[in-house]
Amino acid sequence: MIRSELIEKIAGENPHLYQRDVEKIVNTIFEEIIEALARGDRVELRGFGAFSVKKRDARVGRNPRTGEAVQVEEKAVPFFKTGKLLRDRLNGKEA
């Protein structure tokens, strides 16, 4: 499923909403999650999962093509942990 299909599904269930509003709703939700992580905040969606930021230490990496050692700076990366309910559903256990 891609973003536009998700938008179509929501629009189909909500015929009273304009298509452009449904687009805005879906976009706002994902945008809000990115903005929270960019501030260093967490987003916890019970049953679905939690988005957080993990710090990766600086390390010496290697250019895979040349084998040359390169310094990789410390960085912050997005991380997602699946919620229990969704993990159970993936394995056929309906709550």
Binding site: A36, R42, E44
Partner: peptide
């Protein structure tokens, strides 16, 4: 670094603010 935890409520508040639906409908969406 921030240390807040956002929940569904913050996401529906954003939808409420951006789209102008009721809080209740925003939460449902």
């Amino acid at each position: 670094m921030g240390d807040k935890t956002l929940t569904r409520m913050d996401l529906s508040e954003a939808v409420f603010r951006e789209v102008g639906l009721s809080r209740n409908e925003s939460a449902q969406l």
